[in-house]
């Protein structure tokens, strides 16, 4: 199963990934991060590893996408 990780302390809570996710598997966290925002957090169940969240996210370090290597 593909999955994403969101580094909570690199998220400014803009919500672009949440809006763009085609499977709607990213939500705002209840927690407040060190920047003072509710960061996005992945549910991951149902993630298809499309990478749309990665490209819509303005913070370079926030989102990492993991996927099975098909060539392996």
């Amino acid at each position: 199963m593909p999955k994403i990780e969101i580094d909570a302390n690199h998220c400014k809570g803009c919500g672009l990934c949440i809006d763009a996710c085609p499977k709607k598997v990213i939500v705002f966290s209840e927690d407040i991060n060190k920047l003072g925002y509710h960061p996005a957090t992945p549910k991951n169940e149902g993630c298809i590893g499309c990478g749309i969240c990665f490209y819509t996210c303005p913070e370079p370090e926030s989102i990492t996408v993991y996927k099975e290597d098909k060539s392996a």
Binding site: N9, H10, K12, G13, C14, G15, L16, L35, Y37, Y55, T56, C57, P58, E59, P60, E61
Partner: peptide, 12 residues
């Protein structure tokens, strides 16, 4: 972190 505002197009 970048200095840009949340949701800024520059980061993308």
């Amino acid at each position: 972190n970048t200095h840009y505002c949340p949701g800024c197009g520059h980061g993308i």
